[in-house]
Amino acid sequence: MAEVSAEARIAAPAGKVWAQLTDFSTYGEWNATHTSFPKGGPANLVLAGTYEENMKLMGFPAEVTWTVSELEDGRLLTTTGKGPMGVNLRMSYVLTPDGDATTIRIDGEFTGAAVSLMAGKLKDSATAALVESLRKLDGLIVA
């Protein structure tokens, strides 16, 4: 298993951060691992809803089918995914209001036989991607 996390304080209210986070039409502008939604991003997030995403991790393309496993509008989005070679993923985005700003934390988890072979490199690569993604997300949001 490989676990990753990153956190940032964005100088905007949680509602604006949530709106950008869940605007799948602009996902590629901030998410460093995203390459495309082959069938289009989800129009509306709903518990147990699914969507497909093409990603690139450690330079390798991956197709992931995501399921929304936790959803609290404006505060929490957790998705679980099934990727290639039996890899399972979990991504959790938690928003915490902080005055006129918002702290956003992303926690990710990768499991499966293939992960154990490259857990260290995957953790480093995915953590760097999360940090870059939060930096780009911050740059898109106008307070």
Rank of each mutant, 00 (worst) to 15 (best):
N44W: 01
V46K: 14
V46H: 09
L47H: 09
A48D: 11
G49C: 07
G49K: 06
T50C: 07
Y51D: 04
Y51G: 05
E52K: 14
N54Q: 15
N54F: 09
N54Y: 06
M55P: 05
M55V: 14
K56P: 03
M58T: 14
G59S: 11
G59T: 06
A62E: 09
A62Y: 09
W66Q: 04
W66N: 08
W66A: 07
W66G: 07
S69C: 05
E70N: 10
L71F: 04
D73A: 15
G74S: 09
T78C: 02
T80L: 12
T80M: 13
G81S: 05
G83M: 05
M85P: 00
M85K: 15
G86Q: 14
V87K: 02
V87N: 00
L89C: 04
L89D: 00
Y93N: 12
Y93P: 00
V94S: 08
T96F: 01
T96G: 04
D100Y: 04
A101Q: 10
T102S: 07
R105H: 05
I106N: 10
D107K: 12
G108Y: 01
E109Y: 03
T111G: 10
A113N: 12
V115W: 00
L117R: 07
M118S: 12
A119W: 02
G120S: 15
K121Q: 11
K123Y: 04
K123F: 09
D124N: 14
S125W: 01
T127W: 01
A129Q: 02
L130I: 07
V131N: 02
E132A: 13
E132P: 01
S133T: 01
R135I: 07
K136L: 07
K136Y: 01
K136Q: 09
D138P: 02
D138A: 13
